[in-house]
């Protein structure tokens, strides 16, 4: 079994990739997928700590994160469909109604 540090570093790299994707892309769908990447890196970290501390609570927490991620995807994609109906685009730079 690889040491805990390797898993933590992998989770950090995946989280960083998610942050970079979220901050640099313009397509709202890809922003969404970057958020999913970040959630998954946190899941990996929880499972790693669960194994290293021999505590099953971490794995239960991952299942709750699955539920929250499913709710987030359902609501977020519905909002995205609404936005697309109004703006005819998924380019986030065009969503500037609240900017002044």
């Amino acid at each position: 079994m690889a040491g805990i540090n390797e898993y933590i570093i992998l989770a950090c790299i995946l989280f960083g990739l998610g942050v970079i994707g979220f901050l640099t892309r313009r397509n709202a769908l890809i922003l969404f997928m970057s958020v999913e990447l970040m959630l998954n890196s946190i899941n990996l970290m929880l499972v790693t700590f669960s194994a290293s501390r021999a505590d099953m609570g971490g794995q239960v927490m991952v299942l709750f994160i699955f539920a929250v991620a499913a709710a987030e995807v359902a609501v977020g994609l519905a909002i995205l469909i609404c936005l697309f109906k109004h703006m005819k685009s998924v380019d986030i730079n065009k969503f500037d109604l609240l900017k002044w």
Partner: peptide, 10 residues
């Protein structure tokens, strides 16, 4: 800025 922030955070 986004790339620098992401690298910095990781």
């Amino acid at each position: 800025l986004g790339a620098i922030l992401g690298v910095y955070l990781s």
